[in-house]
Design a protein around this nucleic acid. Structure first.
Length: 421
RNA sequence: GGAGAGAUGGCAGAGUGGUCGAAUGCGGUGGUCUUGAAAACCAUUGUACAGCAAUGUACCGGGGGUUCGAAUCCCUCUCUCUCCGCCA
């Protein structure tokens, strides 16, 4: 959510920049400012009345104490009238505040000026491509066949006990998954991130804090009996650690492994086959809270960090800068990572690294004190480092050989084996 | 699941109708002292909104009510803790 004062200060600029996201926000913004003007006026009137009321109450107290009950009763009547008026004004103020909020949540984050225009993912800009596209042997297979052939994942068993999109990992397939989690966490903690293992269910307030609620309610599994939500990403619990916090020192760096639960209604076919899209999947997330002046520098460092992991895993990958049309509602600037999955001959998104600037922080009330002692919004950033299933798919597809599936060197200390036969 | 207790500033903890945005202690910040540090002492130390400012208003878990006046009384919701039960 954007801050109304920031909108006031940068009105024209914001409207221009939002065009990059293909959004004409001029009506929303004008409306928000008009309502806010009204809110200010209402508050001034209300404050004045309340001040008068407070004063009267004090006088009445004094009069009673000195035994002047008659005079007190006169003032009482005046006080009652004031009370009624001020109450009406306060109600109006609360209503206005809600209306303003309702408008503000409809305005997406302002994209960074460097964000290229564009309508869809087709307009994203490839910044660089690293690694060679592997040339596989004849008869190379997609991962959903390999996982069956080598007895790594039992999709059928998952269907039986839960449903589609809930795979069961077995044998070396399970070990490989565990190895990837441990490896990613180690890479992140080595880079200075503090490891957390958060709850996998969160309350309603946390859903609001990171913006899943109220809009994207359908994306999350909801345990209605206890009104808790299964997390769609570790970003939700981890970012909410810092809800209502005034930060003393920058940066704050967190990493967490969690399963992620997504209802993901409506998508079919080859795109979502096998591991490509799941209702439950594992992900290791990195989150940073940073001073506004340093957040873009940090974004670059985070991109570097994710790159280094993919380098070590010897996976060919592309870094894309998302165009305005593909940028998420809350993001100001996002880089996507896609790895090449040779068995499917497709690029698969495995990480998304974003700077949300103060957009999340405003909703979270995540702030710091500047050199003048004024509270300011922190900037928040996050990224996947990394999402498991598609990495897993690319790893086994790209490394399939006549002898078996080879494990990259970096991962071998974690798997304890160098080939799956 | 049953019974009980509680929720106050960064933390601990007082406050049961006006003198309370709130005692006191700890912590934080600034200063005095010191070669430096510690100790001691002095000062300062919540957030938001409105206002150029002076200042005003709101906030003592959330919401509602009683009252001229509520941290304090009433209703309601949420959460936490303790004991019992169940259980990895």
């Amino acid at each position: 959510m954007l801050h109304i004062n920031k909108i006031r200060e940068n009105k024209e600029n914001y409207i221009e920049l939002l065009k990059i996201k293909n959004i004409d926000a001029s009506d929303l913004i004008a409306n928000a400012i008009a309502k806010d003007d009204e809110r200010k006026a209402t508050q001034q009137q209300a404050d004045e009345l309340l001040a008068k009321g407070n004063q009267l109450a004090k006088q009445i107290g004094e009069l009673y104490k000195t035994g002047k009950a008659v005079e007190a009763n006169v003032l009482k009547e005046e006080s009652s009238a004031i009370k009624e008026n001020s109450k009406a004004l306060q109600t109006k103020q609360v209503e206005l505040e809600k209306e303003i909020q309702d408008i503000l949540v409809q305005i997406p984050n302002i994209p960074h000026p460097s964000v290229p225009a564009g309508k869809s993912d087709a307009d994203n800009v490839t910044l660089k491509q690293v690694g060679d596209i592997p040339v596989l042997m004849d008869g190379a297979k997609p991962h959903w066949e390999l996982t069956t052939d080598y007895n790594l994942i039992d999709f059928e068993l998952g269907n039986k006990i839960t449903g589609a999109g809930f795979p069961v990992y077995t044998n070396k397939g399970a070990k490989l998954q565990r190895a990837l989690i441990a490896y990613f966490l180690d890479k992140n903690t080595d880079a200075g991130y503090t490891e957390y293992l958060p709850p996998h269910l969160v309350n309603e307030a946390s859903g609001f804090g990171t913006g899943q609620l109220p809009d994207k309610e359908g994306q999350m599994y909801h345990a209605t009996e206890d009104n808790l939500y299964l997390i769609p990403t570790a970003e939700v619990p981890v970012t909410n650690f810092f809800r209502d916090v005034i930060v003393k020192e920058f940066p704050i760096k967190c990493t967490a492994y969690t399963p992620c639960f997504r209802r993901e209604a409506g998508s079919y076919g080859k795109e979502v086959r096998g591991l490509n899209r799941l209702h439950q999947f594992d992900k290791v997330e990195i989150v940073q809270i940073q001073h506004p002046e340093k957040s873009y520098e940090t974004l670059d460092v985070m991109v570097q960090h994710v790159s280094s992991i993919l380098d070590e895993l010897e996976l060919p990958y592309k870094i894309l800068q998302l165009c305005g049309g593909d940028l998420s509602f809350t993001s100001a600037l996002t880089f996507d990572f896609e790895v090449y999955s040779a068995g499917q001959e497709r690029w698969l998104e495995v990480s998304s690294v974003s700077n949300f600037e103060g957009y999340q922080a405003n909703r979270l009330k995540l702030r710091y004190k500047d050199e003048n002692g004024k509270t300011q919004l922190c900037h928040t950033l996050n990224g996947s480092a990394l999402a498991l299933p598609r990495i897993y798919a690319a790893l086994i597809e790209n490394n399939q050989t006549a002898e078996g599936i080879k494990i990259p060197k970096a991962l071998q200390p974690y798997t304890g084996f160098d080939i799956i036969k």
